[in-house]
Design a protein around this nucleic acid. Structure first.
Length: 690
DNA sequence: ACGGAGCGGA
């Protein structure tokens, strides 16, 4: 027996009580109720059980001769199991020849709670093959959960069948474990069937469904079933609310979020700090920092999560400066930052390129000895990378005691971010050399580096490695590879990879990578065709997709297609065209010589056009010799960027090509006044000669 | 005698 028992046992021996006394004492314990166990496995009960165990040993009444003693040891084992004392429970259990069902269940539950799903399944198989026991409604939930933990969908389905034939499917505990198992295996369709077939559901069933949908990337289903839950009059459940709010954030569905907020207030859950934090997060992800701040202000006792969530919200909404200011307010309120907070602040420093601030935080990290924390280390590397201090990235990386996958990943993307693609690749090779196994994030980081290199031959060898390693099952990795092939112009390979991805997984970014590839290599028609097919398939194009396809139209001179798509973007898709989209359109119209249309489009822009938009128009004016619009564009451009001499040159070209030599000559003088003027003079002369 | 599910911030 263990070290706890030995001294205790020797003490007891000195008490010199008779064996018969012990036996009578122990017999009273063959009724499990009289065992000193506590249901809430608190520490108090464990010493008592150990003490009793020691007493039993000192009596020397081995081996297990009488049925009463068998019961006694079974009770003892289940008490250990209930306290979560795996070693003793298992030892006693293994010594018993034919454990009763209740002991099996207790041991299975213990392994389930201690996170050993494999052990659970092994015991279940033992139990079945022993032939004298049949699992009951208490056995199934743990075994089914184990299948979920191990993603053993096939076994899960078999167990589901056994549950049905055994007549346990009406038990809500068993049902809920089946729902959770299917969710863990990602079998969304099967879980829907199981849920709608079942009769007796409870709050847990609803919550399991909602959170499962969110985890499986089906936030839409989560919202639908939340509505259903409300309609069915089921009692509102805290975790259902938390999950549905995260679904609203995923979808940026503000109106649903507001509805849930209303329900929260109505049901009196608005003082729950967790729900408030989730509300702040939801509003922040929907881009509504004002509303997020309102929820924040109403909270009486804000915790560290509240503050961190708010900071995170400001960062993701492009206001990283606020995040840093809130740090001081948090400090004043006496809330102590944790490592997540510090990582968030580092992120803010990085996006502001505030390397001084970042160094201060780095110093705090060192003082508080937080460097061992994985998220802190990667956040530091990330921060220095964004500030273009690659040397500091490397220092943090080398000084960290344990080089984890995440650290390597951060280092690889740090190199790529700083335009050092081949260093990123060397870093990856070093990682393999040090026997650190890459994960999907490593690979997609690596693929970004290869995409920068634009090297066709290397792409093939990378592709080969990925096939061998099995990483191609990860959608991110496939996306990276499609991106590489698209950039290299090996479009048939992009297409082939794309075709192999199942319809369900073809998300918008995947389409964008493919469409962008065709567009960039002069296959405008194909890009537009693919875009249409994408819309038909039900994928919702975003700003990036439109950028790709408009770019493609612009390169291939597909004016009408471009206009049509632009209209689609504003009307059907309700996307807000960005500066770049307008630049594309002006470029497109301009190239085709439809200068007046381009000018009209600029006038309708909802924000002030920048140099790129006007520059695009002016370039087109030069090509098509339109002096009138060229002058308009030039005037504005000169205001926006007076020091850029190429604008004057371009205008001079326009004048010269229209035969207005005097104006051209005047401009030449102006260019000389502006400054450097080496190139401008040259092209001016060129324009005049021809 | 014994039991299920879910839970905010990186």
């Amino acid at each position: 027996m263990g070290s706890h028992i030995a001294p205790l046992a020797s003490k007891l021996k000195h008490l010199s009580l008779s064996t018969s006394h012990y036996i009578s004492l122990l017999e009273s314990y063959t009724n499990v109720r009289s065992l000193p166990l506590s249901k809430k496995k608190n520490v108090r009960s464990l010493p008592k059980i150990k003490q009793l165990h020691a007493q039993i040993i000192t009596t020397g009444i081995f081996p297990l001769s009488s049925p009463k003693l068998v019961t006694l040891f079974s009770n003892l084992a289940s008490s250990y199991a209930l306290c979560g004392h795996v070693a003793y429970a298992r030892k006693l259990f293994d010594e018993l020849r034919q454990p009763k069902l209740f002991l099996y269940n207790a041991i299975i539950r213990m392994h389930s709670q201690s996170g050993s799903p494999f052990e659970v399944l092994k015991l279940f198989v033992d139990m079945l093959s022993s032939g004298y026991l049949l699992p009951d409604r208490f056995t199934y939930p743990f075994v089914i959960k184990a299948c979920g933990d191990l993603s053993l969908l096939k076994s899960g389905v078999i167990l589901h069948g056994k549950v049905v034939t055994g007549g346990f499917s009406s038990n809500v505990f068993v049902l809920n474990s089946i729902l959770a198992m299917y969710m863990s295996c990602g079998a969304v369709e099967m879980v829907k069937r199981a849920f709608y077939v079942s009769g007796g559901r409870d709050m847990v069933s609803w919550a399991t469904m909602i959170s499962g949908f969110v985890k499986n990337g089906c936030p839409n289903d989560a919202l639908l079933i939340f509505d259903e839950m409300i309609d069915s009059g089921a009692q509102l459940n805290r975790s259902a609310v938390l999950s549905v709010l995260s679904a609203c954030g995923d979808l940026k569905d503000l109106s649903f979020g507001i509805k849930v907020h209303g329900i929260v207030v109505e049901k009196g859950l608005k003082d729950d700090i967790c729900i408030c934090n989730a509300l702040i997060n939801m509003y922040a992800r929907c881009g509504r920092m004002d509303e997020a701040k309102q929820v924040f202000n109403k909270i009486k006792e804000r915790d560290v999560v509240t503050w961190t969530t708010l900071m995170q919200g400001y960062i993701s909404n492009g206001n990283a400066k606020y995040a840093l200011e809130f740090c001081w307010l948090m400090h004043l309120e006496g809330v102590v930052p944790n490592s997540v907070t510090v990582a968030t602040l580092l992120q803010a420093s990085g996006s502001l390129q505030a390397v001084k601030q970042g160094r201060c935080l780095h110093a705090c990290v060192v003082r508080q000895n937080l460097l061992r924390d994985a998220i802190i280390e990667t956040a530091l590397i990330d921060m220095y990378a964004k500030c273009n201090h690659i040397r500091d990235c490397f220092l943090v990386f080398t000084q960290s005691s344990q080089k984890r996958v995440a650290s390597w990943n951060a280092m690889i993307s740090a190199y790529t971010h700083n335009g050092l693609a081949s260093d990123a690749i060397d870093c990856f090779k070093q990682m393999l050399h040090e026997a650190v196994g890459p994960d999907a994030i490593t690979i997609s980081g690596l693929l970004c580096a290869y995409a920068d290199l634009v090297n066709g031959r290397q792409s093939f060898s990378v592709h080969g490695c990925l096939i061998k390693s099995g990483f191609l099952s990860d959608i991110e990795v496939v996306r990276g590879l499609i991106d590489i092939y698209s950039k290299c112009g090996k479009l048939e390979y992009s297409q082939k990879l794309f075709n192999e991805v199942s319809l369900l997984c073809r998300d918008i970014t995947l389409w964008s990578a493919l469409i962008g590839g065709y567009g960039a290599h002069g296959h405008g028609e194909t890009a537009v065709l693919l875009f249409k097919r994408m819309v038909q398939s039900g994928a919702k194009p975003n700003e990036i997709t439109f950028t790709c396809v408009l770019d493609a139209c612009s390169h291939a001179g597909l004016v009408d297609e471009g206009l049509e798509l632009f209209k689609l973007m504003v009307t059907t898709c309700q996307a807000n065209p960005s500066m770049y989209h307008y630049t594309c359109m002006v470029d497109l119209l301009g190239r085709a010589g439809r200068l007046q249309e381009a000018y009209e489009l600029i006038k309708t822009m909802p924000f002030t056009p920048n140099h790129a938009v006007w520059g695009s128009l002016m370039g087109a004016c030069a090509v098509h010799q339109n002096v009138e619009l060229g002058e308009i564009a030039a005037k504005i451009l000169v205001n926006i960027e007076p020091e850029n001499t190429s604008n004057y040159v371009l205008l001079a070209n326009i004048y010269a090509s229209a035969g207005r030599w005097e104006d051209a000559e005047n401009l030449r003088l102006m260019i000389d006044n502006v400054g450097s003027g080496k190139k401008p003079g040259h092209s001016f002369i060129e324009a005049k000669v021809t």
